[in-house]
């Protein structure tokens, strides 16, 4: 654990309850700057839900998320949930902070999606360029009437540079959806990087990839961390990839965290082997 570095993300007691189902129960984690942290767990363990809470897609039923030293999300059981709340730590949090995903992205959190979500009608270049929209300083009028030429040019140059860095220059003007799967993933990561994030969240980056592509991706993620100085939080099923690049791992099962530690510790953990690497259907 790199405790000497500042904490980039702190999740405290996050509980997400849908109706009577507790999808994530009392989940806490920390990530320090420059780390690669993985969340693993069997299907339906609540990994993606936890992810969606951190990125602002869902407001948690209870709990708090602190990002880059700033409290960004906090909620407590309110309204209908007040009576029906099944989780723990009720009453510990009293604030209500529920930003939309774009606000969190503006603070420096960028994500990719499990089922690739590129803008389908657009080229590789445009996909990266649009992610630069957030960084604009021009208003509607100056943008429409060409008062932002310099900014426009800078955005285009930055997008081109980024495409070059991630190795997609040869397909720059191809429609995004015409790329092979591995390159679409790469593009989605490049698009997230275009927002200049401090924390990059990857939701199953190796899903649907063949072994060759997975090896390339593993190398790519390592490169990104070093080149762009980002911290990375990822959800993954491919054990090879996770054990290879993660500094630390959190293991979820049925919504609760059952273990956390270094890859070596996790590989030796009895509980994890039972729940995940053992005789479950999806192993």
């Amino acid at each position: 654990m790199r405790k000497d570095k500042p904490c980039i993300l702190r999740v405290e007691d996050v509980t997400m309850q849908f109706g009577g189902v507790v999808a994530v129960n009392n989940f806490s984690m920390e990530e320090y700057e420059g780390e690669i942290v993985a969340i693993i767990g069997p299907n339906g363990a609540g990994k993606t839900t936890a992810f969606n809470v951190i990125t602002g897609v869902y407001a948690p039923t209870n709990g708090r998320v602190t990002f880059d030293g700033r409290k960004v999300i906090e909620n407590f059981p309110r309204g209908k949930m007040k009576k029906g709340y099944l989780g723990e730590n009720a009453g510990k949090y009293t604030d209500h902070l529920e930003p939309t995903p774009d606000k969190l992205t503006a603070l420096g959190m960028a994500r990719t999606f499990q089922n690739i979500r590129l803008w389908k009608s657009m080229t590789v270049f445009e996909n990266v360029l649009i992610a630069k929209h957030m960084k604009r300083t021009s208003n509607l009028f100056s943008a429409t009437f060409g008062g932002n030429r310099a900014e426009e040019k800078r955005q285009r140059d930055e997008a081109d540079a980024l495409i070059e860095t991630v190795g997609l220059s040869d397909v720059r003007d191809e429609p995004a959806t015409s790329l092979p799967y591995g390159k679409q993933r790469r593009l989605e990561i490049a698009r997230a990087l275009a927002t200049d994030p401090k924390l990059l969240l990857l939701d199953e980056p190796a899903a649907g990839m063949n072994p060759q592509e997975t090896v390339e991706l593993t190398r790519f993620i390592g490169e990104i961390r070093d080149q762009f100085h980002v911290s990375i939080l990822l959800i993954e099923h491919h054990m090879d990839l996770v054990m290879d690049i993660s500094d630390r791992i959190y293991v979820l099962d049925f919504g609760s965290m059952i273990a956390h530690g270094t890859p070596v510790e996790i590989q030796a953990n009895e509980k994890v082997i039972d729940a995940y690497l053992g005789v479950t259907d999806d192993a």
Binding site: V57, D102, F113, K132, H133, M134
Partner: peptide
């Protein structure tokens, strides 16, 4: 313009657009 591109991003995929920092509302 950059705004028009953001509009197209919303049309193509709202969830992705919001995740990339485009304020939908």
């Amino acid at each position: 313009s950059t705004y028009g591109r953001a509009f197209k991003a919303i049309r193509d995929d709202e969830v992705a657009a919001e995740a990339m920092g485009i304020n939908l509302a």
